[in-house]
Computed example of a mutant assay.
Amino acid sequence: MSLDSAVRAHAAHAAEPQLGRTIVSIQLLRFVAALAVVLYHAHLTFARDAAGHPWLLSYLFDAGASGVHVFFCISGFVMVYTSYCRDAGRFSASDFLVKRLLRIYPIYWLVAAAYLAFHAIVPGLGYHLSAGELAGALLLTPDDASLVIGPAWTLAFEMYFYLCFCLFMTLGLRTGLLAMTGFFLLCVASSVLLPGAPIAPLIRNPLLLEFVAGAWVGYVAIERPAWLARPARALLLLALVGFAATLLTGPERAPTLIAWGAPSVLLLAGAVGYEAGGRFPRRLGRYAYLGDGSYFLYLSHILLIDMVLLTPLSLLRGTTGGIVALTIVTTVAAVLIAVLAFDHVERPMLRLLRQHLLARRRAAPLP
């Protein structure tokens, strides 16, 4: 190959849509999704039983519940992208499960312990759980996951998706995704075709299709990023239209999968495509660290809201302006705590656990 040909080939490759190991848009979407959920829960709690509170304001804050659907789509994307992007190496089911368990459980148990301690100390707020229910909550079983940390019901979906993903990816990425998609579709369809069948509700829940949709976006981001980069603006516009249409018509008018799920998938695809095409504003990269603390933020914010209710700040709940101010102040405080907790608690703990586990696995004798 001549020098000119090599230069042209390099320039053409550089101009192709591509993504790095860390995707800034995903980090920001994780933060925005968690922030929306916090605003929703904070306003819902502070505005409860408030006389004369504007219904429109409550309606707008309630839209923050859509953050859960964005989370599910992101989770599917991240599982595929981190497992199969160019420098990820060969997929290992055992490594995948170990990494996921370390990512989910240790910090969850730590935050759950804080909830249990707080509710044990404050009169009238104690949990009344049997040993089985407490164990189920700590293990994130579908029926008990929300008994200690309310929003942890979503983690039961996460764990189920991780197990299915790990199983189906033994078939390879494309074949595994096709098989997993077919399996989830059959499970969801069984709720209509076999309504009385003894199948766990989680397995038949349409929310699982949001994980699958995000996983397919991850597949396209790896194999054909140009397919996301070229229509990125149109995808983002459709996402905004979808969210706006749900707000205008009411989320109860359509199944949740369509009302919030479809716009969430479009938002994910558009954001990733925008970054793949090199159009993502670089200055936003400085805020990517906010996504790191999104998991702690999601887990801990209800505890902070409960604490605020016990302080003189709760007196602000008497007026609409006070409720909004209390919602915003609590949300900002939750974000700051989450960022600090990730830097000084979550990240060091994960590093130590991974190092310890890797050392033990390396020291283990070969069979």
Rank of each mutant, 00 (worst) to 15 (best):
G182K: 09
A338P: 07
G242Q: 02
G293I: 04
I258V: 15
L207Y: 10
Y59G: 08
W153T: 07
R30N: 04
L116A: 09
I203F: 14
G124V: 05
H128G: 12
L193R: 13
R279F: 01
V212F: 07
H53Q: 11
I222E: 01
G318M: 00
V80G: 02
G273L: 01
R224V: 02
A364E: 14
L290D: 04
P195C: 06
G214N: 04
R21D: 13
A269E: 06
Y160G: 11
P312A: 00
W216V: 03
V272I: 11
L290P: 03
V32P: 05
A215D: 03
I121H: 08
H119R: 15
R283C: 14
T141V: 08
Y298L: 05
I323L: 10
A232Q: 05
A288N: 04
L238P: 05
L266D: 05
P54N: 04
P106C: 09
A120I: 00
P17A: 11
A63V: 00
L299T: 08
I26Q: 00
A63C: 13
A229C: 01
L290W: 07
A325L: 11
A156H: 10
T249F: 14
T319M: 07
G285P: 01
A42C: 07
S146G: 12
G250D: 06
A341E: 03
D143A: 15
H301R: 10
C164T: 12
L208K: 00
D4L: 15
L110E: 02
E223N: 10
C187M: 15
S264G: 02
W153C: 04
R100K: 11
K99V: 10
G150T: 13
V188P: 10
L267F: 03
A215W: 00
R361Q: 15
L186V: 13
A244D: 04
A325Y: 06
A114W: 05
Y81K: 11
R103S: 08
R204A: 09
A9N: 10
R283P: 09
L267D: 02
D4P: 03
L238H: 04
A114H: 07
M159N: 08
C85W: 13
Y289T: 09
Y59P: 06
P142K: 04
A12M: 09
G89D: 03
F71A: 08
Y162V: 00
L209C: 00
V324K: 01
L257A: 05
D143S: 14
T330Q: 10
E210F: 03
R21N: 13
A221N: 03
F61Y: 12
A325G: 07
R354C: 12
Y105K: 12
F96I: 02
I104V: 14
A341I: 00
G218T: 05
V345Q: 01
L336A: 15
A179W: 06
M349L: 15
V308Q: 09
L129H: 09
